[in-house]
């Protein structure tokens, strides 16, 4: 049957990916840590304090880049799942698994920082506006991915189920992104006008957050890949 038979070795793709995952060593993490510290200094001392919300507004410099970066692991789960269904390579399953865990982490941070923002800006921790609802759904989708994985005993069946699920789960991403335009009653503003200093710091934060995101995926992939070689069940 088509559903059986996983290529255990990983082939060329697996070897390339493992070499790529080897980049995430002390130098990478040291540089990323340095950029995070610089980003924090920029937010603390080089951005104006917003008139209405005060210092709490500064969470925005972290919230938006993390929200944007959260789409990256979601896309990796989608792409790796699609490639897995095509080639049945174990490295695709490991990569999707690693990315799903990072997606949960990033979506959790987005929701938590968003709630802190919402409490200050709108006076309540949570509203059931379309974007918030769909963001919560996105978090739930990847939480379920991570929770269901170990519940399926057969490695082949687990990889197939997770690949199909990961491909379909990605559909929520464009919906989250376009929800403000598609459902105009959303409490989220369609666009935000920021002072130039704010924009610069916001753009700077995209770099360390992006590095964290890619680094987490790579490091976790390497763990899973080594675990598979040692015969661990993911």
């Amino acid at each position: 049957m088509a559903a059986s038979g996983v290529e255990a070795g990983g082939g060329t793709g697996g070897a390339l990916l493992r070499r790529w995952a080897g980049v995430f060593g002390p130098v990478y993490w040291g540089l990323t840590g340095l950029l995070v510290v610089v980003g924090l200094v920029l937010v603390a001392f080089f951005t104006p304090v917003e008139a209405e919300m005060g210092a709490v507004q500064k969470i925005f410099y972290f919230h938006l880049p993390v929200a944007v970066a959260a789409f990256v692991p979601c896309f990796v789960v989608f792409a790796a799942g699609a490639v897995y269904l095509w080639h049945r390579s174990a490295w695709c399953d490991d990569l999707a698994h690693a990315a799903a865990e990072v997606a949960v982490l990033f979506c959790s941070v987005v929701l938590l920082t968003g709630m802190i923002w919402a409490k200050e800006a709108w006076g309540q921790w949570w509203t059931w506006s379309p974007r918030l609802t769909l963001s919560l759904v996105l978090w739930l989708l990847y939480v379920v991915y991570v929770v269901v994985r170990p519940l399926i005993g057969s490695p082949q069946r687990r990889a197939v189920v997770c690949a199909v699920y990961g491909v379909m789960a990605f559909l929520d991403v464009p919906l989250v992104y376009f929800s403000v335009r598609l459902m105009p009653e959303d409490i989220h503003p369609g666009r935000v006008d920021l002072a130039p200093a704010m924009v610069r710091v916001l753009l700077f934060w995209m770099v360390p957050v992006g590095l964290l995101c890619v680094g987490f995926i790579g490091a976790r992939y390497r763990q899973l890949s080594v675990g598979r070689e040692c015969g661990e069940s993911a």
């Binding site: 759904v137 989708l141 399926i152 699920y165």
Partner: peptide, 21 residues
């Protein structure tokens, strides 16, 4: 038998965007 109950976990979140809209 090991897979019973998983369907609800998988289907509900995938259907959630459709249900919301």
């Amino acid at each position: 038998a090991g897979r019973r109950g998983l369907l609800v976990l998988l289907v509900l979140p995938l259907c959630a965007p459709v249900v919301v809209v």
